[in-house]
């Protein structure tokens, strides 16, 4: 079953800005889906039309088979939204924010209190339940947004740049939490600027640019489309010139390190052999940048 089916979605703002120019997007139930794009590409507008924050100009959008404009109550009830900006009442207590949101979704108060306790404990916010939201750190506020979005047990979780401004440790714990959630059956649609995050978490990906989807498919197939990967190879020696049979190599500012391109048909074993043939010793091997990032930049360039 499709969790999201978007067909020819268009949005033109009153200012005349055409934010979405005929978007087609399908997210299967159970997917962990990444929607990538630069600032102003149309990601947040697209999500806004799904949850009723933005009026679309034309097109159709279905959530679990139901058109969002015809069945607003049912479709909204199946979605949990983690917005990009903190949009809770900063003067309200953490627990109240989550319980109140549950009430808006029609969850009885007793049940709402129990679910809130579980979510705040899972997201390590229980100790802060009586603090006002304004006194939370940035990372805690992000987790509060997640707790609030999950309090009505949605089948589809939409995350709009959930780890923006979050430190590395917290980011990894949030990734683990989201992976577990997806494993339990929640469909997740994630927009992010962090391409490593998308590559780590998502099975499928769509890239949006200027209000249009320019590429979509499985993460694996998209990455396979890349003609080559660049590795930064650090040698024990300082080779002045580097000729590796069958490989393109480029010097870096560090005299020990060279960038080596490994084509899709080539293997790392072949690279090691070519290095050995030159009597060089590798002390470190790193991918130069993130693979998805390279693909993303290639697509934007083209």
């Amino acid at each position: 079953m499709h969790a999201i089916e978007i067909h020819q979605l268009r949005k033109t703002y009153a200012t005349g800005v055409e934010a979405l120019k005929g978007v087609d997007l399908t997210v299967e139930s159970g997917d962990f889906y990444a929607l990538l794009g630069a600032n102003g590409a149309g990601k947040t507008t697209l999500l806004g039309t799904l949850v009723g924050l933005v009026n679309r100009s034309s097109g159709s959008e279905k959530v679990f088979g139901k058109e969002v404009l015809d069945y607003p109550e049912e479709t909204k009830h199946s979605i949990g939204l983690v917005p990009q900006e903190f949009n809770f009442n900063i003067f309200e207590k953490v627990e109240n924010i989550v319980v109140t949101q549950a009430g808006y979704y029609g969850v009885p108060r007793k049940q709402a209190l129990a679910r809130t306790e579980k979510l705040l404990k899972d997201l390590e916010l229980w100790d802060k339940r009586n603090s006002t939201a304004m006194h939370l750190s940035g990372g805690m506020k992000r987790r509060l947004l997640i707790a609030r979005a999950l309090v009505h047990n949605p089948r589809l979780l939409i995350l709009d740049e959930p780890t923006a401004g979050v430190d590395v440790e917290l980011r990894h714990s949030m990734w683990a939490y989201l992976r577990e959630l997806n494993k339990q059956g929640t469909t997740i649609l994630l927009t992010t600027h962090n391409l490593e995050e998308a590559e780590q978490l998502c099975k499928k990906v769509a890239i949006i640019q200027n209000g249009q989807i320019i590429k979509q498919g499985s993460m694996r197939s998209l990455l396979q489309e890349m003609s080559e990967s660049i590795y930064q190879v650090t040698f024990k020696q300082k080779p002045e010139k580097l000729k590796l049979k069958g490989f393109k190599a480029e010097a870096t500012e560090d005299p020990h390190s060279w960038n080596v391109a490994v084509g899709q048909e080539q293997t790392l074993s072949a690279l090691f052999e070519a290095v050995k043939a030159e009597d060089l010793t590798i002390v470190e091997l790193n991918t130069k940048g993130n693979r998805l990032e390279q693909l993303y930049l290639n697509l934007l360039d083209s």
Binding site: V51, G52, L53, P72, E73, E74, K76, H77, I79, L81, P83, E85, N87, F88, N89, I90, T100, Q101, Y104, Y105, G106, R148, H152
Partner: peptide, 17 residues
């Protein structure tokens, strides 16, 4: 104030009529 702080969105994204 709810509009200004955007927490009116909490009700809009929920199924509140």
């Amino acid at each position: 104030s709810s509009k200004f702080m955007h927490n009116v969105e909490e009700m809009i994204v929920a199924s509140v009529s």
